[in-house]
Amino acid sequence: MSTLAQRGLRISKNAIFNLFLNRAAKLLGKPFKVLTVLNETADKLADENSKDNKFKQLFAVALTVVRMVRSYINGDYRQIPTSTVVSGLAVLLYVLSPIDLVPDFIPVVGFLDDLSLVSWFVGKFNGEIIRFRDWEMQTAHLTASNPAQGDPSLPVVAELGHS
């Protein structure tokens, strides 16, 4: 039996995922649309009520990917290769899409391929995720010492004039 990361690697090499990579690359220049995708993906991940510790960890990391792409789009965090952001956004688009290798309406199995792809992304880009989380903690510390900068835990709202 293969691991989630191995399944995710197979999905990442699939032609269907390549479509999501292309879509993500095109969306990257449209911040308002990316933020909409990020919010929808975060909502979808937050609705999952799995009690399994492994899955909870994957959900937490997937939400970190949402925040990482959001911070990149907002211009707050640029210490990451654009190709990593495109891959992360493609993973999020795949998770959000009801039409993928295993449709989400199939109980349990439909969401397992999404988790597999997230697991692959985490394995491949773990260093980037750790650096982003470190940056988040430093930013939160700076914001706490300077309240005028706002609360980083609040959702980011795109300004209509910037999309």
Rank of each mutant, 00 (worst) to 15 (best):
S2T: 08
A5H: 10
A5T: 14
R7A: 11
R7I: 11
G8Y: 08
I11H: 00
I11P: 00
I11K: 00
S12Y: 03
K13G: 11
N14M: 05
A15S: 08
A15Q: 05
N18K: 13
L19E: 03
F20K: 05
R23V: 05
R23P: 05
A25N: 07
L28G: 08
G29Y: 04
P31A: 09
K33D: 14
N39I: 08
D43N: 10
L45E: 01
E48W: 09
N49E: 09
S50L: 02
K51M: 07
K51G: 04
D52G: 03
D52V: 06
N53K: 11
K54A: 10
F55Q: 07
K56F: 02
Q57D: 08
L63V: 11
M68S: 05
M68A: 04
R70F: 09
S71Y: 09
Y72F: 00
N74R: 14
T82L: 11
S83L: 09
T84Q: 01
V86Q: 07
L89N: 06
L89D: 06
L89A: 07
Y94F: 15
Y94L: 05
V95C: 04
S97Q: 06
I99Q: 00
D100K: 00
L101G: 03
F105R: 14
F105P: 08
V109F: 12
L112G: 02
D113M: 00
L115Q: 04
L117A: 02
L117I: 01
L117H: 00
V118F: 03
S119H: 11
G127N: 12
E128Y: 01
E128L: 04
E128H: 08
E128P: 02
R133K: 14
E136V: 08
E136Y: 09
Q138N: 15
L142K: 12
L142H: 14
N146M: 14
Q149H: 12
D151W: 05
D151H: 03
S153M: 13
L160S: 13
L160Q: 12
G161N: 13
G161P: 08
G161V: 09
S163Y: 15
